[in-house]
């Protein structure tokens, strides 16, 4: 066992423990802001694991796209909404047994399926490390723009749809936004603003007697 393998194992287990801890804190924290920050921690630790798996481009994309954009959006929304957390706290303890039961069921089933005798190093040997000239970005790009061309373009259309949907959902109606409408402003006519009123002249009001006496 070389020093590199030991280092690799240390990094793997440190990242794995960090991910599990961050996951527990995400579902357990009362304050959604803290939950979002722990989710960022989980993403960063996952990026370390992905780099260990030689998927450098995706690891960096995870940091840029998730930590940089999606989690920022999450934090903005969480801080913008003034959430009353009191009624939500009481349910947590009530659902705890059910949650643990569901989690234990899923864990037992999946870990039974992916046990080391099925997916251990005997069945799937640890691949050789890529050479220093290997470029993950080049490899990924060369299949992304050839074999997966149509899915790639569909993904861009999907992102466009998401942009339009998110903006049109969150944008308040124009009446609420108190927009100026210059087109209507320059077309305004005198009749819209000024009302000519024809009315009969009243009889002349004389000054009262008291006022006259004073003089």
């Amino acid at each position: 066992m070389t020093i590199n393998m030991i280092l690799e194992q240390i990094v793997f287990y440190a990242a794995a423990v960090t991910i599990v801890f961050a996951g527990i804190m995400v579902i357990g924290s009362r304050n959604p802001v803290r939950g979002a920050l722990f989710l960022v921690l989980a993403f960063v630790a996952s990026a370390i694991l992905w780099i260990l798996l030689e998927a450098e481009f995706l690891a960096l994309a995870l940091i840029f796209v998730y930590v940089g954009a999606v989690m920022t959006l999450f934090l903005f929304v969480v801080m913008m909404l003034d959430i009353n957390l009191e009624p939500m706290k009481t349910r947590f303890v009530r659902y705890l047994p059910l949650g643990l039961l569901v989690m234990a069921l899923v864990l037992v089933l999946v870990i039974f399926a992916v046990a080391p005798q099925h997916f251990g190093t005997a069945k799937y040997a640890v691949p050789q490390h890529a050479s220093a000239s290997y470029s993950n970005v080049k490899e990924l790009g060369s299949v992304l723009y050839t074999t997966y061309m149509y899915p790639f373009e569909l993904a861009s259309v999907l992102l466009l749809v998401a942009i339009i949907a998110a903006i049109s959902l969150a944008l308040p109606s124009s009446r609420k936004r108190r927009l100026q409408r210059p087109g209507e402003q320059v077309q305004v006519k005198r009749e819209d603003r000024l009302r000519m009123v024809k009315m009969q002249a009243e009889k002349k009001i004389l000054p009262s007697r008291k006022w006259l006496k004073k003089r």
Binding site: I19, V20, G23, L100, V102, G120
Partner: peptide, 23 residues
């Protein structure tokens, strides 16, 4: 590090998030 280590980590994370959805 075997493949099953990564798969077990994924399973633990998946189970945690299911528990989070229930809780």
């Amino acid at each position: 590090i075997s493949l099953s280590s990564y798969l077990i980590l994924g399973a633990v994370l998946f189970g945690l998030s299911i528990a989070g959805i229930v809780l």
